[in-house]
Write a protein that binds this DNA or RNA. Structure first.
Lengths: 218, 218
DNA sequence: ACACAAATTATTCAAGCGTATAATAACGGC
DNA sequence: GCCGTTATTATACGCTTGAATAATTTGTGT
């Protein structure tokens, strides 16, 4: 009861705030973390920098994530999911869906330097952190399986009955091609014209597959 | 003179050491830095961890590098140089030199998870640190120019007179292919057999170039 | 209106960071 | 064999980090 002394210090006012829904706060924190990683690098993406960018104070992070490590893992999961879902074209012919997949991964908003920076920062930690390795590995398999199925349907639509293992090898090759050109574009965009890398990818893919591959078919 | 008080503390003995040549100390520090980056990640590669691994104490780093940043830059330069010089085959036919270049970049000691980790850790900082960006950019151009020249000689040896820009596009495509497959091997070596990726790269490259490309020619 | 649960802020703490400085050991020239 | 140079160690400093805790504001159900 009367045991509290009201010192002058207690008169200092606090910053006002509002209570946001759990989901949106978590999303804001994850997005802010990715922003910081892209602009400042993984080492400089500290809780004290991330939190204000999400519009909250540093202490709140621990209310939504058990540790900073968990926030980083959530950010990696969110990032990989947003990267993987872009190339997905639900309809159209096998040819156009394959072409769309290749093109989507070599243009905005997938292929840019921001995404390369984030991706590389995480990949540089994959060997260190098994949790990040798992996230990476699952995203990679998803990506390659999607591509392999697109290739199988594409070849089937051209009347080809590919021998065992051929689709796999084609998927590995074109996956490599996409990844490598994605890197080139993100790391040195100024060296290429807007559509150059996408064109190169399409013409290379059709040589590898031995079938014409146009972006305009449906 | 007699103004020094010999307290008991001064009797404690120091660790013995030996004076190493400048060049080898610098090399040891750079190598230790790369080891730490590969095994612990860039953020955990601190002076206090790097120095003991190089066989010295933390304070010595500043005697050889003006700052930690300079050590990291030296490490990046050393790493990129060692990666680039491997594919170089000074003699042989154009075909065998091109094949050797492709194969060398997809086998040990170039293609492994350690190198991927180091490379990715640095790439994740390229946007942040202009000095690292410069190092990266120069190594990239060296790599692609080497490849473009190998391709030009290879096509010329087959009697082709490639149209303007064709060699450039071929170099971009095969560069992407090599980079992407190098990544795949380093990140998920267990998914591929020993020579699988190298074989895929060779057969894809000869389809892209429209000429047979064997590893056994000279 | 009001009380209660919990979301949010503010503050504190120990640990680790890069750097600076002073003491010391090692080595080459004489 | 000593002496001076300097490579090397040891220690200290100020700062930042992730985390823990205490204090306070907010919204919701009644």
């Amino acid at each position: 009861m009367s045991h509290q002394t009201h010192s002058p210090a207690e008169l200092t006012s606090r910053r006002s705030f509002h209570r946001a829904p759990q989901a949106s706060r978590r999303r804001d924190l994850v997005d802010a973390a990715l922003d910081c990683i892209a602009e400042l690098g993984l080492s400089a993406a500290t809780i004290r920098v991330i939190a204000p960018r999400a519009g909250v104070t540093a202490g709140l992070v621990r209310h939504y994530f058990a540790s900073k490590e968990m926030l980083i893992q959530a950010a990696y999961r969110s990032f990989m999911a947003s990267m993987t879902e872009r190339g997905f074209a639900p309809q159209g012919s096998a040819e156009s869906r394959l072409a769309h997949f290749i093109l989507a991964n070599l243009q905005e908003p997938v292929a840019n330097s921001r995404n390369i920076s984030i991706w590389a920062a995480f990949v540089g930690q994959v060997r260190v952190d098994p949790a990040l390795a798992l996230i990476h590995h699952e995203a990679y398999l998803t990506f390659r399986d999607t591509l392999e199925e697109l290739i199988a349907e594409f070849l089937a639509a051209h009347g080809e009955k590919p021998e065992r293992g051929a689709c796999r090898r084609h998927a590995i090759a074109i996956n490599g091609l996409i990844d490598g050109l994605w890197l080139e574009r993100g790391l040195a965009a100024h060296l290429f014209s807007e559509t150059e890398l996408a064109d190169i990818a399409l013409s290379s893919a059709e040589k590898i597959l031995g079938q014409p591959l146009s972006r305009h078919t449906n």
